[in-house]
Amino acid sequence: MIAKHKYFFHFPKCETDTPIVCRLVRDYDLEVNIFRAKVNAEGEGYLLLELTGEEAQIERAKDFICSFGVSVNTVDKGVIRNTDTCTHCGNCLSHCAPHALHLRDSHTRFVDFDESRCVACGQCVANCPMGACSTVF
């Protein structure tokens, strides 16, 4: 069965120069859609991507990636929204193209965040006056 999942990978310093993603395509027959990638000043890497392929192949690919000491988060951490800091003004809404940030309730204008739709573009980070959104990218 063809599946599509989004993952957030954290690469330890020793593995950021290892070409791992190409193996996902070549060895596991997966389509890879990279949203964001970054190597920080300490040499650690972050990668937010979407994998499409056979469910079993995706599972095997995850095991392969974990064998390098890469941590795999199925709960996306590309963007972190601090719900205590958010005031629900809604300024982010028109800047969030995939509508990951959306109104839970159009009457009260309570803003909700659907992580599965987030592509970590960072527009919410730039546009939140309260600094409620942050990203490692």
Partner: peptide, 13 residues
């Protein structure tokens, strides 16, 4: 046109 607000209706409520 998409419209957004700087004022929080939720907090005002």
């Amino acid at each position: 046109v998409e419209v957004s607000s700087l004022s929080s209706y939720s907090m005002a409520l």
